[in-house]
Design a protein around this nucleic acid. Structure first.
Lengths: 144, 144
DNA sequence: AACGTTACTTGCAAAATGCAAGTGAAAACG
DNA sequence: CGTTTTCACTTGCATTTTGCAAGTAACGTT
């Protein structure tokens, strides 16, 4: 299995630094959240995020996430204009990171999206498992 | 006189967005890593991170992390030049987030700091517990 | 008093971000 | 068929953030 391709020079070899260089900005994890939890798969859908990302930034982040092997971009077979973005196994593996970040913020701060938080709190492992399963089905349906 | 905390209007109410707005940059989590795992507590120590942060950025991030209640800044009682930065309970609660980010990067990519990764893999909960305990002692020793 | 430490600040160039408008290809409509 | 709409971007430009080098004020050491 190919790991990452010739990586741009990292500031250090620490794995946390690797994560931060790939995901440490104000948008990447929100895009992954929308794909993972809301099932968004097109540029247009991702533009409608609650946080109102700009089109050039979204295009840039999708390009970077693809480079990092976190998502894939494939032309839609039934609509030549559309591009279907999908999480790779590597992207799906970010579910625990997202879960811990949601729980951390919710623990100390008044935030919205209480249903999500409650579900995370109630059974984090179960939710992560269901995300994996949902995406397994999505990949299957894209092939069929 | 410290700046008044102005209500930092959030882009959305999602708890993940709250986390990202507080921690979503290339330095904050690395600073927290150095405090949590290496026990760094002064400006000078934090400057010696593997990733070579600039002094103005470090000062700015420490200010922000304090505003968010993730760390505290107290003058050193035995050396008037020094400021002792400490993780608050809220900061310590970031241990699971750090752990998952380390494990994610290590799972799919060649990175260094293998001892840390191995320890995380072997027993994540145990490591998080030991971080909590280490910091409990540190707080006690600061009071005594 | 002179000198080194410590925790910053300041000035400035470079890069990243954000907004508005535009582009080109494909689909949908009439 | 021609026109309009949808879609996934790109481009231009102003603003903000970052990064580097240098400076500074307070304290501690000798």
């Amino acid at each position: 299995m190919p790991k990452t391709k010739a990586a741009p020079e990292r500031r250090s070899g620490c794995p946390l630094n690797a994560s931060v260089e790939m995901l440490g900005d104000r948008w990447s994890l929100l895009i992954i959240r929308d794909m993972m939890l809301r099932g968004y798969q097109t540029f247009h859908e991702l533009l409608n995020s609650d946080e109102k990302i700009a089109t050039n930034i979204l295009a840039d982040r999708l390009r970077r996430l693809e480079e990092y092997g976190i998502i894939t971009a494939e032309p839609d077979s039934s609509d030549g204009r559309k591009v279907i973005y999908s999480l790779t196994p590597r992207g799906i593996d970010l579910a625990p990171v997202l879960a811990e970040m949601v729980l951390w913020a919710a623990r100390h701060e008044e935030t919205g999206n209480q249903p999500l938080v409650d579900e995370m709190r109630r059974d984090k492992e179960q939710l992560i498992a269901s995300v994996r399963q949902k995406w397994a089905q999505k990949h299957k349906s894209l092939v069929e």
